[in-house]
Design a protein around this nucleic acid. Structure first.
Lengths: 172, 172
DNA sequence: CACAAGTGCTACAGTGATGTGACAGATCAA
DNA sequence: TTGATCTGTCACATCACTGTAGCACTTGTG
């Protein structure tokens, strides 16, 4: 069903700027009856879960195709950034509350571990400074990804800006 | 009354990680009866407004004491970062929804304009690159402030890390 | 002590969202 | 066309939160 996909993406978009958006509102925006949503998802939480799950799947796909383990660091970083920016734009999810859920947490943890390992490699190969606080580069990268996703430019352009900012900052 | 301040700071903290936190929950966490909150604030929105207002006041104070117009750019930047980090920690408000309110919007706009002007000066004096997309440095700085605020280190340390990252990035 | 102000507690009406049921109409495959 | 599946709609119970009312109790100030 195309409708289901529409509900998920629309829901993601709406919940992004108002986490309290009701199922009625989401259904209406997706051009679907509220009752139909309840036929697909037993509860509100299940819908949120499905949305988050879709996002996580997209993130995993982006990580996969970035080849973080194999490609040269600069190449992988660019591909990863571009991929995640596209994911963030299609799934602008900000369901921080769901991160409590163990299943989500575990799965999300695996993805971030992948990225953390990549940053570790980048450090070892001399692309990142080695004297940074633990996890700082990772958290910085994630924030920059959100920031770049909201920039009014193409994904490749945004990725370029992001990588350049990440590595060299905005100073002279 | 000390209670009022407690309600505001507690509310800020609770609403930061769950924007739907009820007045009952906030009151309970602040060690106050729900009815007492309603005696101070006519409605829920008025409480949110008061919290946001307290944060804005703290931000203004931080901007003020940073002397963004007069001090040398590096000095002002450090003072500003340190001040805002402390504000973010005391008022971890993420009431993006309130930004619709015209009063808030206008007041918030004045603060950010002040910072934007400072960044403009920093660019003119050669501390920031001049070829950045419009507003990128400002949005980046704001995000970095949130990020640094959550780091487990003292405000001055976090400010150092922030400024260094902002200006030179994390690359080698 | 006495008075005033503030707070806690119980209770209540109103509202909006959630989740469920039943039925009619639409869609699509055989 | 017929049967099965999906969807829209009206209806309903439930629940949590909001906002208000009245009364009893505590606290501080003269």
């Amino acid at each position: 069903m195309r409708n289901l996909e529409t509900v998920l993406t629309t829901g993601a978009r709406m919940l992004a700027d108002d986490p309290t958006a009701s199922i009625s509102a989401i259904a209406a925006a997706a051009g679907v009856d509220r009752r139909t949503v309840y036929r697909r998802f037993a509860s509100r939480d299940e819908l949120l879960f499905a949305i988050y799950d879709a996002r996580l799947a997209a993130v995993d796909a982006a990580i996969e195709s970035a080849r973080l383990r194999e490609s040269p660091v600069p190449v992988a970083l660019h591909r990863f950034a571009e991929g995640i920016i596209e994911v963030n734009r299609r799934w602008p999810v900000e369901l921080t509350r769901l991160r409590t859920e163990p299943t989500i947490q575990e799965r999300r943890g695996r993805s971030t571990a992948e990225v953390a390992a990549f940053l570790q490699r980048a450090t070892e190969e001399g692309f990142l400074r080695a004297d940074l606080p633990d996890g700082w580069a990772l958290r910085l990268l994630i924030q920059l990804l959100h920031l770049a996703s909201n920039e009014d430019m193409s994904a490749p352009q945004a990725a370029d800006l992001l990588v350049h900012t990440l590595l060299t900052g905005v100073g002279t």
